[in-house]
Amino acid sequence: MIIRPEMLAKIHITFKNGVLDPQGKAVHHALKDLGYNEVSEIQMGKYLEVRLEGVSRQEAEPRVKEMCEKLFANTVIESYRFTLDSVE
């Protein structure tokens, strides 16, 4: 029986510092109106889960990085980070 290792990449994409995030700003404003004055900053972004089949962690890492740079994030305005977990 062949065991196919499976990896789960959890990817977060947010605006880079200095890029206006109108949604984040609006949500922040709304929270202030609701009395949550302790909130100092909000970053809204995207979250993706990507399942990869038949690759090890070492193989997955550069591939996911490439996907982020090529497609998921526009690096002119967005930054990304991700974690990799193996799935049973």
């Binding site: 605006f15 890029v19 109108p22 002119v76």
Partner: peptide, 16 residues
């Protein structure tokens, strides 16, 4: 701009 034929990016209107 996504294809990098032009510089910069286009993001959501500040009016949302």
């Amino acid at each position: 701009v996504e294809a990098k034929l032009l510089p910069g990016a286009l993001i959501q209107n500040n009016t949302q």
